[in-house]
């Protein structure tokens, strides 16, 4: 039995062939192309809309999903990674430095999970220690000093819960990073590219614009964490994911992100180049829009964006 996803893959292949043919021969095939494109779009929407929240969490964690560095390699040039917090150490779970994003000079800050077992362990699966956030603070000072817009790529299950992290002030470091972002006098565009786990994610999330990839999640707590608290059973994570409403469409509906960046069907790992192209375009577009604003407007706009967040009633 063919599922809508099978039909879609078949139609996508036919569409690619036709587009190739049109380009090769210079023929106008729009009569055939236009309805085909419409049908592909419709099916895409249908396939994605039927994903459960837990299935999306699975895609956000899919093996082979592009990490921050996979996007940096495809979208950035002249990236000079700057290391260390100048106080204690360097955190490999949070990387940063000046680069060109689609040709535009920026300060890049990104949470890096690692791509193989060894680098995943070294980078603690993207879970930062306080040094990571303090490095981010240092690099935001740098960004303000050189007038570089800040681009952050968020991908962390959360800040690292360890003894040393607590000794060195994990909460203090995250709070400091949030405050430093609030005070930025340059544009800040943030994109959640996988997992947006709690305060550890928000530490890089106080942007003028916040984008989220279609299958990324962003929440106050992981589905497993919520399930452990509610039902004392991490296996109930699928129910917790539903309750937490942590998917990209949820966040857009709640007004917490500006845009959902589309991913290739089946998730970013199915076609990292296409995922990167969409992400690159979206971030560049927002950077361009913000480039017209002055330092005071940027800070005030960012403040207003977050000041308005919350749901309550007044009596």
């Amino acid at each position: 039995m063919s599922t809508p996803a099978d039909t879609l893959r078949e139609l996508e292949a036919r569409l690619r062939d036709l587009e190739d043919a049109a380009q090769r021969t210079g023929q106008d095939l729009s009569v055939a192309l236009t309805p085909l494109r419409a049908e592909v779009e419709r099916l895409r929407g249908e396939c994605q809309a039927h994903l459960t929240r837990w299935e999306r969490v699975g895609l956000a964690r899919a093996p082979g999903r592009p990490t921050a560095l996979d996007y940096v390699e495809r979208l950035c040039t002249d990236f000079a990674e700057l290391h260390g917090d100048r106080a204690y150490g360097d955190d490999p779970a949070l990387i940063g430095g000046p680069a060109r994003w689609g040709g535009v000079p920026v300060m890049l800050l990104a949470q890096q999970k690692g791509r193989d077992t060894k680098s995943k362990i070294r980078r603690r699966f993207g879970m930062s220690n306080p040094e990571g956030y303090r490095k981010a603070i240092r690099l935001m000072d740098f960004a303000d000093r050189f007038g570089l817009p800040v681009v952050t790529l968020i991908d962390t299950p959360g800040a690292y819960p360890g003894i040393e992290a607590e000794e060195r002030g994990q909460g203090w470091a995250i709070a400091g990073s949030i405050q430093r972002m609030v005070r930025l006098r340059v544009p800040a565009v943030c994109a959640v590219i996988g997992e947006g786990g709690s305060g550890g994610a928000l530490a890089l999330g106080v942007g003028n614009r916040v984008l989220i990839q279609e299958n990324a999640w962003y929440s106050v707590i992981s589905p497993e964490g919520a399930a452990s608290i509610i039902w004392k059973d991490a296996a109930k994570a699928p129910q917790a994911a539903e309750a937490l409403q942590l998917t990209a469409p949820d966040l857009l509906r709640l007004g917490l992100v500006e845009e959902v960046v589309p991913e290739p069907l089946g998730g970013a790992h199915r076609d990292p180049d296409a995922a990167a192209a969409a992400l690159g375009e979206a971030v560049s577009r927002h950077l361009a829009e913000l480039s017209a604003l002055g330092p005071d407007e940027l800070k005030a706009g960012r403040a207003a964006r977050f000041r308005a967040m919350g749901a309550f009633r007044e009596v």
Partner: peptide
């Protein structure tokens, strides 16, 4: 800590309060 029942809205209060303290 943050209130789970308001999910990401609770999370954003961390940024909101920081803004107000400015």
């Amino acid at each position: 800590g943050a209130r789970m029942q308001e999910s990401a809205l609770s999370l954003m209060q961390m940024a909101k309060t920081t803004v107000a303290l400015e």
